[in-house]
Design a protein around this nucleic acid. Structure first.
Lengths: 339, 339
DNA sequence: AGATTGTTTTGAATCGTCTCAAAGACCGGC
DNA sequence: GCCGGTCTTTGAGACGATTCAAAACAATCT
């Protein structure tokens, strides 16, 4: 194998290993002549520092793991992108891990990250209450919850999903809808549960005559949305809800597609509001109304909290940051024609 | 810090460190009684194996890096998902790194991955000809190019982009278009150049009367598509191409949005063909015709090649796998009404 | 020349785990 | 009580980089 060690560099440059290490880490303390000789040897051998050994000795990695529910949801791509800026500045590497909303895979990723002794973990958990998360923190791997509020024992960055759900619900009610569907994923996912609770509170506040039809699906995918859409489309027009609030935009886009396929008009026959306001929402068949979240800001803030925790380790106080969502109204929920 | 070492476990279980290591790695060779005692100690201390130290000793990591051009492009999410299956089976972890098509960031990721001595790297390079890639391989980190054909010195998995471009071009020409725009990204990206060359060859084969208007943009984003769309929309109708072939679907979706915003009808005023056939393509304002790539299969095959290379190390022969794309025709390029 | 101070360089110890030759335990048979 | 043969367990090196006390060297002043 072509990997060279610091020792070989030392031999070639005719200095001790300590000196090579110094050249690598504190070049200013070694004399220009020696330094140059070492650099020369490094170049000649194609030496690449073994970060693993370094990490073992130093005891701290320069990698943080970001575990997301679904890499293929652009929402998470944006969160990841937001995290990369501050990470770069602290020359830290962000690695993305996909749990696919599967507790088993999430577990495996967490195990692996802990075993690798990463600097810390940013995670959108499948189950925020899982003891695994607090265990991690207790054993020395700081964890920041992303898009999910923590209860005090750890840092978190979230958006008020209840509020988001309520805003969406109020908007649809105001537009004259009386029978509203909530297309959600597994209620074990906090975001889903909160958005549901939010829209529910709006419906309840509107009093009699307005009702919510919950449609819990097993996942939060495009296909899920499509299937839910087909199910609703198959209902007799009298019973069918006239509006749907989808737990996220990916689901909403699938739902929208099903409407088109079944010949239902959006928003005339079915109004739709999504969640996240991903870039594609505006570009959909019918531009999608959506509850906007500050995606990049979530990622950015999360990693800042993590780095803060790592730096101040001693006197660190966990913080729970909460952002406010807002509604972006587009064609998919324009005023209904026939009140 | 709450991290325990194998030594502490050994003390508590009153065995030697070697035995603990055996329990961890080859439990069958240690007697049931001792094994149980060790497990007990592990549980009691909350011991988590330090993968870093293990890796240093064993010399081989169980992580592979997947470096992509753009995490927020669902195409790459699907490739990543494809890679995860076989990876799991070899209990290997796939970490996703985003170069954002920026050579500097790509470089930084590669450096970091090499320093971490990962098992190997899957990469969709910004520049496939970069010497960095062969250096890596020469120094012992196997590299498999993804979605980009290698010239023999390494493994690669790709889709025939020239063919894809040609198919798209032929399709539009057959539909009666005589002035076709190619909306591309930086030609330094191999995929873009090949797709361009492909559509160009179709146009040339069609002979006089058909022409290609190349529109090279700096990036391959949604916004790029939108800007290109606006630029074309601003052209006088006589000069304006009647069809656009976009270098990927994300660009195509942006382009489509610009058409809608400027009041141009798709496909009547402007036909569109995208590339990748991401899930959202079918769900767009006007369902998008697109050149389909076997996304998951790309990822799956790439990691299989990598694992193969790692396993057979000695007698490994690099392979270049090439898949065929095919065209999925949807509304955005339906036959033109007025021939 | 010797003492003093400051600058460079050295090299042994260390991080946590794995490996493997060797030692130990145990058993049945004589 | 000893022998040969299985099973188990042991513990002393690695692995590659960092650290830091101490040694070596250089420059300046008496």
């Amino acid at each position: 194998m072509g990997t060279r060690s610091i020792k070989e560099v030392a031999e070639l440059a005719r200095v001790s290993v300590g000196t090579v290490s110094n050249v690598l880490n504190r070049p200013e303390i070694v004399s220009p002549a020696t330094r140059e000789r070492v650099f020369q040897a490094i170049r000649e051998l194609g030496f690449v520092r073994n970060e693993v050994a370094r990490h073992l000795r130093v005891g701290r990695s320069r990698t943080v793991g970001l575990v997301v529910l679904d890499v293929s949801n652009p929402f998470f791509a944006d969160v990841a992108q937001g995290a990369e800026g501050p990470a770069d500045e602290h020359d830290t590497m962000v690695v993305l891990c996909n749990s696919g909303a599967d507790p088993v895979r999430e577990r495996r990723h967490l195990d692996q990250l802990e075993q690798q002794r990463v600097l810390g973990i940013l995670i959108t958990p499948v189950d925020a209450a899982s003891p695994r998360l607090t265990e991690l923190a207790a054993r020395g791997t700081p964890v920041v919850l992303v898009d999910s509020a923590a209860s005090g024992a750890q840092c978190s960055v979230a958006v008020d999903d209840r509020l988001g759900g309520r805003i969406a619900g109020e908007h649809l009610i105001e537009r004259g809808h009386r029978r509203i569907a909530f297309i959600g994923g597994p209620p074990s996912i906090k975001q889903v549960a909160d958005r549901h609770a939010g829209v529910m509170s709006a419906v309840e506040a509107a009093g009699d005559g307005v009702e919510l039809v919950a449609c819990a699906m097993p996942t939060l995918s495009f296909d899920t949305g499509r299937r839910a859409g087909e199910r609703l489309a198959a209902m007799p027009p009298g019973e069918r809800p006239t509006a749907a609030f989808c737990a996220n935009d990916v689901v909403a886009l699938g739902f929208l597609q099903a409407m088109a396929a079944r010949g239902l008009r959006v928003p005339a026959d079915m109004a739709i509001v999504g969640y996240d306001d991903i870039e594609f929402a505006a570009a959909a068949a019918v531009p999608l109304s959506s509850v906007r979240q500050p995606r990049e800001l979530l990622g950015r803030t999360a990693i800042e909290l993590l780095l803060e925790e790592v730096t101040e380790s001693e006197r660190h106080r966990h913080r729970q940051v909460i952002f406010q969502p807002d509604l972006v109204v587009r064609a998919s929920s324009e005023p209904r024609r026939g009140g």
